[in-house]
Amino acid sequence: MKIVEKSDKKQVKKDREFKPNIVCFCCNWCSYAGADLAGVSRFQYPASIRIIRVMCSGRVEPAFILKSFKDNVDGVLVTGCHIGDCHYISGNEFTKDRFERLMKILKYLGLKDRFRLEWISASEGKKFAELVTTFTNQIKKLGPLNNI
């Protein structure tokens, strides 16, 4: 009896739609405000992301991204101010340089499509909602990380 129950459960799990877990790093001054605006203006986007607020996108270390992949997160988004708009003048330029280098390594690991770096300003609520929607769809196509 028990065995039958277990297999039933497995089937239910398979049938259930895959909901990706996405970690999203937002900088305090632009992207977080952008995400806020998306909420205030009631743009719809999937509830797949977990936002982590950092003071600047320059705070996000590549090790954070690797750590989340190690813990079976399906995708990682890093967002920050547009180049030239950084609250700390050049924080996002460091970010850009850093993640261009990381991209090579993610390519090597086959995780390139699960990571994206985007610039979102405080007024781009619509863009934020669209970004999350497209990224979630992309991850859905790829499937969960722990059983590729």
């Binding site: 270390e61 590549p62 090790a63 690797l66 992949f69 190690k70 086959g110 990380l145």
Partner: peptide
Amino acid sequence: AHKGFYTLLSEIMSKENITPEKT
């Protein structure tokens, strides 16, 4: 050192479902 970057890389690689593609 290096915020654990290189160790994390090895640990990610140790997962069976990840197959690296070298160029």
